[in-house]
Amino acid sequence: MSIYRSRARAALASAQSELASNEDQHLKYAALELRMAIEAVTYDRASAYKSEFPPQEYETWQPKKVMAVLLEIDSTADSDSTISLGIEPSPGERPEVMHDLGKEVVFNLKAIKRHYDALGNFLHVPSIKQTLSGSLPGPEKIRNRCEEIARDLEEVLASKVFNSTLGIFSSFDCAECRVRIRKRMPRDKDQVIADCFECKASYTITRTSDGKFETETRTQEIPCPNPGCGHPAVIFPREVSEGEYWICEKCGGRNEFKLGILHHPAN
């Protein structure tokens, strides 16, 4: 069990304890613990995609944004699933008997959008507009929402199997830094882009007609802008960004990418 799943269980238990007190002033503490539980189960889900999760997204903490990244990686990342096991009579033929190993319930993006911000609203002093309009959430409404979320989280954490991420993958060593790259191949796509998380290298992976994968390095040639040179350099697409540069192999000059504005004088 990951540390985040343990934290989710602890936060849920604390929230349930606050709700069990039947004290209205404890509801905000229950809401806070439930928010933390939602964060924890979402981070736990993300940990299952560790090898595919872009390092630049590690600082993302909002569950909605984290789940959005996961759905870019795997369109089924927030879907419930059931894992069953059976023996094929012959390769590719469905087994006559399937043994159920368990169901996984995921706290999906729809649930995050519906509940997470609502819980946050319970943690703040009502705005002037809310006060003047009288649209303040009463204790009963807050309690009902918290109890609903607690039940949903309880079902998620009771899953017999969890963080199953079955898929078709292409794995290969980066030609530049030799770090292993592992890329998921969606069933409905025959070509995807795979970026190395260790360096700037980028690749195109293509599924062939026989079900195998071909990998091609993504590069482009850019000539040295020195008027007296023009020697081409092979550049990765991810290197074309502000501040990146290369040293020309022919003239030795430094060529740096800059954001520029071209001015056209008035006639």
Rank of each mutant, 00 (worst) to 15 (best):
S164M: 09
I38T: 02
L157I: 01
R254V: 13
F236M: 05
L71H: 02
E39T: 04
Q220I: 08
E154K: 01
R114C: 03
P186D: 09
R187E: 10
A37F: 01
G134Y: 06
T217D: 04
S47Y: 12
R207V: 12
R114N: 11
R45L: 08
L132Q: 08
Q191S: 15
I193D: 10
I222W: 08
N163T: 05
E216N: 06
V156T: 10
A266E: 15
L166Q: 10
M98S: 11
F257I: 15
A118R: 14
Y116T: 00
R143F: 05
G228H: 13
H99P: 02
H99W: 14
E154L: 02
D210F: 01
G102D: 05
H115P: 01
K200C: 05
N144S: 07
V41I: 00
G102F: 09
D44A: 07
H99F: 15
Q62N: 06
L132D: 09
K50V: 11
C248R: 09
R35K: 09
V240R: 09
E147Q: 10
L70Q: 04
T215V: 15
A48M: 01
Q56E: 09
V97T: 10
S75Y: 01
R238G: 04
K200D: 11
N163G: 03
R145C: 02
C248M: 11
I261W: 07
S209H: 13
E18H: 12
V69N: 10
V125S: 14
H124N: 07
D80H: 03
I261P: 00
L32I: 11
G260Y: 00
P55C: 10
P63F: 02
E140C: 03
L153P: 02
C229E: 01
A201Q: 10
P54A: 13
V179S: 09
K189L: 15
Y29D: 08
L157W: 04
N121V: 04
N255R: 12
W61I: 06
N121W: 10
Q191A: 15
E59M: 11
V240T: 15
S127P: 07
I128P: 02
R187L: 13
T76V: 08
L109Y: 06
F257R: 14
G86S: 07
P139Q: 05
E256L: 15
F172P: 05
L70T: 04
G243R: 07
E57P: 00
S133D: 10
T204D: 02
A15R: 06
E72H: 08
Q62Y: 09
V156H: 08
